[in-house]
Design a protein around this nucleic acid. Structure first.
Lengths: 350, 350
DNA sequence: TGCAGTTCTGTGAACGTGCACAGTTTCGAG
DNA sequence: CTCGAAACTGTGCACGTTCACAGAACTGCA
């Protein structure tokens, strides 16, 4: 920065000699006005004369002023950031395309409102503690919570802090928080009925994540659709919405009920695994067994044949959740529920 | 929340009456010591007597004190956060499992060092401007940059701000920043040689993302491995590492060179697409055509037969990049290059 | 000219920390 | 008992902003 004279070698010991930033004070001096006026200009408030405005604009450009967010946050008592809390094992974060979509949808909406997103992944006990501390630190003004399970300690922390929050999916416990969902039950019923309408007689289900509302509701819809043709022995429950779980479950189901001719898988990933197991067992899809999934994620277009499924607007879920939080931040009324539309997408797997 | 008495309806106009937080001052009063002593205790410094410590501990518990991060950031001139900049179309963020893995690896390392990660996705012009403003705002102490392309405006902003940074992949331009990579060229050479060793005579490549070092290096390694048996007409370039691109490219390649009996796809997603096209064209894998990919992502285990590929330690890349940034933050020496090991994973597709 | 209303401006006080520095106590050695 | 070092403690200032408030300048109207 300064041209060191050849004789004196100045050894810089400070780690990163980042250039000191211009403050609102520097701008004020440069423009020949006061701090207050500069602040008003920056925040787009009234009562700034034309001449002052011009001088300030020039000064800002000259000194390269950018507001210091920490100082602003301190005095405004807010952070202009929203936490995105994911309650999943790391592996599923990668495997489940839905979460990525939800994150993107939320990030887009937050960006548009000039909010920042802080990603918080909770996988272990240690994470829980760390995230709780983080939330308490006042670093986020609100949170979006994805895939919380029953009796989630993080949810309790959020409630205690009275932090604006929106859940993707039903919130656990008796909380009165806002949330955004799709009609899992109705959609599951619809696609099961559609599958039945193709003439299948022995329809099974690979149910997943029954400890979450999404999983439980999909099973409920399935049961409802079949009515008295429902056979409990044709339901195979698995823990997670994963490919490998679907494959193993289908294998088990085939052993127990070789005459099964239709399968509703609780997610596309599960369905893809099931199709793999069917292929390995020499069953043709859809000729021998019809398969339907749920999500319409990237999986559905990859399978062969293309998977019939329910389109879940994942990005829209994230976006809506963000909007709910932003609404609360603007002081709008409390708990809201939003249900987004989902539709059956019929391809060739059934 | 509060049980309003029937006669007096109190209309709450303040947005969220968040409980006011205890400050270091409150703790000091409660414990009967000074602010300075509390501050020393909180930051684990020396010179706090046993009696003071006990009193402070009790006081903190009683008033529920949590340090205010904004105030701390302001006085310390840092934010304790690192930006994670992704330079990709939104769609690919979802489709490419690598990015998710890299993000997780980085997030883990940052969390362990008590740093927070802010996700910044750059997709449009508007995003570029927004992110530049964000970086200038002093909200991050450093950045991890994924998949930057040549002449990236964000990279220039980072350089101008003198912000500690680490790239995943070679940084664009003549920048002297730190970065972490794998040996794309050597690995591509290795797997191509291995493919050739299975007796293939007409080996083609679906090259992708040639405007990035990863894409260009993989093509270079391929060329190198084949030597004078290299045939330029067997190279099909595509823009992105995507499934659909792989499918279309394979189709084109088959039309131009029906005698092709081996294919190196620039990524697993591309390879999966290629296998789909081969299947549609009635070619058997590996009997008629051997296929190999790159990444060892979730795709590789899903294909049928399992894909031979190069294992890329995606989480490790993210982790290393985070460590490089953290190192610079601690004031350690400047630009470093780290190369992680990658290995050929041989399955059944070739 | 006086006066009220509006528009504009500057000043001082927060916000909640960390840090330098000055001051006080403790303690062991001479 | 004295003295100096080491262990502790408290105070004021700085960080960069917003906000309330007091006051100045400008308007239009009587």
């Amino acid at each position: 920065m300064s041209s060191a004279s050849p004789s004196t070698v100045s050894l810089v010991t400070t780690p990163t000699p980042r250039p000191k930033r211009a403050t609102v004070h520097d701008v004020a001096v440069e423009a020949g006005v006061s701090r207050g006026t500069v602040s008003r200009y920056v925040n787009g408030e009234r009562y700034v004369s034309a001449s002052a405005r011009e001088a300030i604009e020039a000064a800002i450009l000259k000194v390269g002023y950018v507001p210091n967010t920490a100082a602003r946050n301190l005095v405004m008592q807010r952070s202009q950031a929203v936490g995105f809390i994911v309650h999943e094992p790391h592996s599923l974060f990668v495997e489940d395309p839905n979460i990525g979509e939800i994150l993107l949808g939320a990030n887009t909406a937050l960006s548009e409102a000039d909010y920042q997103m802080a990603v918080l992944i909770v996988d272990s006990e240690r994470d829980t503690e760390r995230v709780a501390r983080y939330l308490s630190g006042g670093l986020v003004d609100g949170v979006i919570i994805v895939s919380a399970r029953a009796y989630d300690p993080i949810s309790r922390v959020v409630e205690r802090l009275n932090l604006p929050a929106a859940y993707v999916g039903h919130p656990p416990g008796a909380s009165t928080a806002s949330f955004v969902t799709i009609d899992n039950r109705g959609s599951a019923r619809a696609i099961t009925e559609r599958l039945a309408a193709t003439g299948r007689r022995r329809i099974g289900m690979i149910a997943a994540a029954l400890d979450r509302d999404s999983g439980a509701d999909r099973l409920a819809g399935f049961t409802e659709a079949l009515g008295d043709r429902f056979d409990e022995r044709l339901v195979e429950p698995v823990a997670l919405y994963s490919y490998s779980a679907g494959r193993d479950a289908m294998q088990a189901l085939l052993e127990r009920a070789p005459d099964v001719d239709g399968v509703f898988a609780a997610s596309d990933a599960v369905a893809a695994g099931a199709m793999e197991a069917l292929r390995a067992a020499g069953r043709r899809v859809p000729d021998d067994v019809g398969v339907v999934g749920f999500d319409d994620s990237a999986w559905a277009k990859r399978t062969l044949p293309g998977l019939s499924t329910v389109r879940q607007p994942a990005a829209g879920l994230g976006r809506q959740a963000a909007l709910l939080v932003l609404g609360q931040l603007r002081g709008e009324a409390g708990a809201q529920e939003v249900q987004l539309e989902s539709e059956v997408v019929w391809r060739d797997s059934a």
